[in-house]
């Protein structure tokens, strides 16, 4: 293990890359720095999309409620846009650790009964799940 300079290491984040012909992800970094239209309100449709990404089935009432609540939180978060962070490095890890490894040695696996003991449903030595659509 290696501890490098000081306490706070700042994790550099690279630029967007193009992966094997894949298009770069669209991200509105410029908007963020300008601070104008960034903390836009979240619409009900976006709430539904986010719920889909989060695998959460929401009731109509929850959709209403979360739209309102998330908007008020995001409105509060809008003060971040006041800060000029164009020259600031993001910090993903607060500790200055790097290169933390384990050696390539085989240890004990869990007893299969323990692996499966919490399974809501199982079939023989497998976890059982409903059909995949």
């Amino acid at each position: 293990m290696l501890v490098i300079k000081g306490f706070a290491i700042i994790v550099r984040m690279g630029k967007e890359f193009v992966e094997g012909g894949r298009q770069p992800l669209l991200r509105c970094s410029l908007l963020a720095e300008k601070g104008s239209r960034v903390f836009m309100t979240i619409t009900r449709e976006q709430v539904e999309h986010v719920a889909l990404l989060s695998r959460l089935e929401l009731t109509e009432a929850e959709k209403e409620q979360y739209t309102a609540q998330l908007n008020s939180i995001l409105e509060y978060a809008a003060i971040l846009a006041k800060l000029d962070t164009s020259q600031v490095e993001p910090m993903a890890h607060v500790l200055s650790l790097s290169n933390v490894f384990r050696e390539d040695q085989v240890g004990n696996s869990l007893d299969r009964e323990l692996v499966l003991q919490n399974a809501p449903e199982r079939v023989e030595g497998f976890f059982k799940v409903p059909r995949i659509v």
């Binding site: 004990n108 696996s109 299969r112 023989e124 030595g125 976890f127």
Partner: peptide, 19 residues
């Protein structure tokens, strides 16, 4: 530290981490 070997019985090469 679970083994990478092929062919064990199902769910026998797992531990809390990879599970």
């Amino acid at each position: 530290s679970c083994p990478t070997t092929f062919g064990g019985e199902s769910n026998t090469h797992v531990c809390p981490v990879c599970l």
